Simulated scan of single mutants.
Amino acid sequence: MHVIVLGIRGIPARHGGFETFAENLCEYLINKNWQVTVYCQEDGSGRIYETEWNGVKRIHIPVNTQGPLGTIIFDFKSVVHSLKHDGVFLTLGYNTACFNFIHRIFRKTNVINMDGIEWKRQKWGMIAKAWFWLNERFGCWFGSHLIADHPKIAERLATRINSDKITMIPYGALHVTDGSEYILESFGIEKNQYSIVIARPEPENSFLEIVKAFSVVRRSTKLVVLGNFQPEINTYHKLILDAASEDVVFPGAIYDSETVGALRFFSRFYIHGHQVGGTNPSLVEAMGAGCAVIAHDNNFNRWVADDSAYYFSGEGDLARFFDGDYLDDNFILDKKHKSYNNFNDRFRWDFILSQYESLLLKYK
Rank of each mutant, 00 (worst) to 15 (best):
residue 106 F to I: 05
residue 158 A to C: 08
residue 60 H to A: 03
residue 180 S to T: 11
residue 165 K to F: 11
residue 50 E to A: 05
residue 2 H to Y: 12
residue 203 P to L: 08
residue 291 C to F: 14
residue 181 E to V: 15
residue 345 D to L: 13
residue 35 Q to D: 14
residue 331 F to W: 13
residue 242 D to P: 09
residue 201 P to Q: 09
residue 137 R to C: 08
residue 161 I to V: 15
residue 92 L to P: 01
residue 176 V to M: 13
residue 42 E to C: 08
residue 154 A to G: 15
residue 50 E to R: 07
residue 24 N to C: 12
residue 108 K to C: 08
residue 185 E to P: 01
residue 139 G to R: 00
residue 6 L to A: 06
residue 69 L to M: 12
residue 321 F to D: 08
residue 78 S to W: 00
residue 219 R to G: 00
residue 195 S to H: 03
residue 62 P to T: 03
residue 128 A to G: 09
residue 253 A to D: 04
residue 321 F to V: 01
residue 28 Y to S: 04
residue 54 N to D: 14
residue 168 M to P: 01
residue 108 K to W: 14
residue 291 C to G: 14
residue 202 E to A: 06
residue 335 K to A: 03
residue 340 Y to V: 13
residue 128 A to K: 13
residue 138 F to H: 10
residue 35 Q to A: 12
residue 247 D to N: 06
residue 313 S to Q: 15
residue 262 A to E: 00
residue 169 I to Y: 03
residue 104 R to C: 04
residue 102 I to L: 09
residue 118 E to N: 11
residue 45 S to C: 04
residue 189 I to Y: 06
residue 106 F to E: 10
residue 72 I to S: 11
residue 56 V to D: 03
residue 284 V to N: 05
residue 232 E to F: 10
residue 123 K to R: 10
residue 351 F to S: 11
residue 147 I to K: 01
residue 251 P to N: 04
residue 264 R to V: 02
residue 179 G to E: 05
residue 212 K to S: 11
residue 330 N to I: 03
residue 53 W to P: 04
residue 173 A to G: 12
residue 36 V to Y: 04
residue 192 N to G: 11
residue 213 A to G: 06
residue 274 H to Q: 11
residue 362 K to D: 07
residue 52 E to P: 02
residue 343 F to A: 03
residue 42 E to P: 00
residue 149 D to C: 00
residue 132 F to D: 00
residue 62 P to I: 05
residue 329 D to Y: 08
residue 118 E to Q: 10
residue 189 I to W: 13
residue 26 C to M: 13
residue 185 E to N: 13
residue 58 R to A: 01
residue 35 Q to W: 09
residue 191 K to W: 05
residue 116 G to W: 12
residue 10 G to S: 13
residue 141 W to F: 12
residue 133 W to F: 12
residue 151 P to V: 04
residue 214 F to P: 03
residue 293 V to Y: 02
residue 9 R to C: 07
residue 158 A to V: 02
residue 20 T to M: 05
residue 282 S to F: 08
residue 184 L to C: 02
residue 25 L to K: 13
residue 218 R to W: 00
residue 10 G to H: 09
residue 303 W to H: 09
residue 97 A to K: 04
residue 182 Y to T: 15
residue 15 H to D: 13
residue 202 E to S: 03
residue 129 K to C: 06
residue 309 A to K: 03
residue 277 G to R: 00
residue 49 Y to H: 09
residue 202 E to N: 07
residue 26 C to S: 15
residue 97 A to N: 06
residue 67 G to T: 10
residue 106 F to A: 03
residue 143 G to P: 02
residue 227 G to M: 04
residue 48 I to K: 09
residue 356 Y to L: 14
residue 239 L to G: 05
residue 20 T to A: 15
residue 141 W to P: 01
residue 308 S to E: 01
residue 328 D to P: 04
residue 118 E to L: 13
residue 331 F to H: 15
